[in-house]
Design a protein around this nucleic acid. Structure first.
Length: 474
DNA sequence: CTATGGCACGGATT
DNA sequence: AATCCGTGCCATAG
């Protein structure tokens, strides 16, 4: 099967191949933009809005039954692959515009790890929001970074929606009091202060905590008890107690389960949420032994085809414009064919990944088998750069509804980090990095002590001496 | 002396 | 050719 497809690839003309490759490099959103601009430019192209499957709302081709709904056949080894469109999700839900649960009933299915924070908070404050405040809240929530901090100035929100800054502040204030306390703060410092304030309403807090955060945040971050005590004019014991209180009760990055390494290395740039390029799900959701179904999503609401009117007109045409029209027609043909090839190539890749990484897909990070793009390329009989293009910038939604970048399938350290997390989560006493390294070695992950430190940091796990039986999850 | 982070090198990967 | 990643060495903090 693969052989046939790759042979097809080889027989393509160079123009065709070039276009296929450039389309392959695009993710679903970029592809959508590209196609729409071509649709506007080229009259030979047409978007046909076909009828929908009454059950799953996908458009149907021809007169046959819906290929997605009618029970797909496949085995554990041979996942089923579809190239399909989805019409049931409002485009706007993905573009960071206003989202509200009742507006997009299926949205929760499409929420990425990061964006689920937004919905979680929205659910808490939705009842308290005036209708006019909803867009403000949506704007703020969709601008949170992965740490739960607000990545844009509140003033910008006010300007955008033409409302008074105080209106935005009022919404923001309510958001900051939602569950991960302090979300929506602009800086770690502000987040800490908000948490302190909230905490102060229900229990006693050290009187100097506020000043310590406001004026000596660096010392807190570096755990410099000595310097802090000196600066505040208190004893080292008092200083240590203060630091412990703050570190145990407050969190500069509200959405992180643990204090990461917050004195150096700014948190990574906020991930941009997109609808996934593909879905991987179980043929029967409740049966983990059923075959996997891979669905390549198309950005189009309908079926791209040659404009029949255009073809008829061209056939009857005699004047000087004919060559130009002919050219348009050729271009349109080429695009449609290339688009098909692009989707085929993606499907091929995903089918392979689904088969090879079935355990990872169903059972999580720990079971990712090491894989390089080069290996995949060799197996599929395509060039390495083809695989690179296909993987770059794309995302897939797994059966657990998480949307992950395709690159993650090639992350060699992922299972090790998962193992590390689970060791730390279960440890009785904090283990040092070298102890962790030994543990990992016995589990079949021979990595250097130095590397443990790196992974720890990536996972946001504190060094041993700062961990005190704080249960780790996530 | 032990634990951990910074820097930089070299090999693999893209 | 450029980039990423694991690792070794060294400095520093405790």
């Amino acid at each position: 099967m693969y052989q046939i497809q790759s042979q097809e690839l080889r027989t393509l003309t160079t123009a065709h191949l070039a276009q296929t490759m450039s389309l392959l490099a695009l993710n679903i959103e970029e592809l959508g933009e590209k196609i729409h601009s071509l649709l506007a430019k080229n009259p030979a192209l047409e978007l046909e809005e076909s009828r929908r499957c009454p059950q799953c709302l996908r458009p149907l081709r021809g007169n046959g039954p819906c290929p997605v709904c009618s029970h797909p056949t496949g085995s554990n080894d041979e996942p089923v692959v579809f190239i399909s469109h989805r019409w049931d999700i409002p485009e706007r839900a993905f573009t960071g515009g206003s989202i509200s649960p009742d507006e997009a009933p299926g949205l929760d299915e499409y929420v990425s790890e990061e964006r689920s924070l937004a919905l979680y908070i929205l659910q808490q404050i939705a009842p308290a929001l005036a209708p006019a405040e909803r867009p403000l809240a949506a704007h703020i929530l969709t601008s949170l970074d992965e740490d739960g901090l607000l990545s844009i100035p509140p003033l910008e929100v006010a300007r955008y929606h033409h409302v008074l800054p105080s209106r935005v502040e009022s919404v923001l204030h309510r958001i900051q009091r939602c569950d991960p306390p302090g979300v929506g703060a602009s800086t770690p410092r502000e987040a800490l202060l908000i948490q302190l304030e909230i905490l102060g309403e229900s229990r006693e807090v050290p009187p100097l905590a506020r000043r310590a955060i406001e004026e000596h945040l660096e010392h807190l971050g570096r755990y410099q008890v000595h310097e802090l005590s000196l600066a505040l004019g208190i004893s080292e014991a008092e200083g240590a107690a203060l630091v412990r209180f703050i570190r145990e009760n407050l969190n500069p990055y509200p959405a992180r389960a643990h204090w990461g390494d917050w004195h150096h290395g700014a948190p990574a740039a906020a991930p941009v949420y997109r609808r996934p390029d593909a879905l991987i799900r179980l043929a029967s959701p409740n049966n983990p032994d059923s075959p996997l179904v891979v669905e390549i999503l198309s950005p189009l609401r309908g079926q791209l085809r040659l404009n029949p009117l255009f073809r008829r007109a061209l056939a009857e045409m005699e004047d000087a414009r004919r060559p130009a029209w002919q050219k348009d027609l050729e271009r349109a043909r080429l695009l449609i064919k290339s688009l098909g090839q692009r989707n085929q190539a993606l499907a091929q890749l995903l089918r392979y990944l689904a088969r090879k990484q079935r355990r990872f897909i169903l059972q999580g990070d720990l079971y990712l088998t090491p894989l390089t793009r080069a290996q995949v390329a060799a197996f599929l009989g395509v060039h390495e750069s083809t695989v690179s293009r296909a993987v770059a910038g794309k995302t897939v939604q797994l059966p657990n509804r998480r949307i992950i970048p395709l690159e993650r399938f090639f992350d060699r350290s992922l299972p090790v980090r998962a193992a590390l997390r689970s060791i730390v989560a279960q440890e009785e006493k904090p283990l040092s990095d070298s102890q962790l390294a030994n543990r990992l070695k016995t589990l079949g992950y021979p990595i250097a002590r130095r590397t443990v430190a790196k992974y720890r940091q990536m996972e946001g796990i504190l060094p041993a001496r700062l961990r005190h039986g704080i249960a780790s999850h996530i």
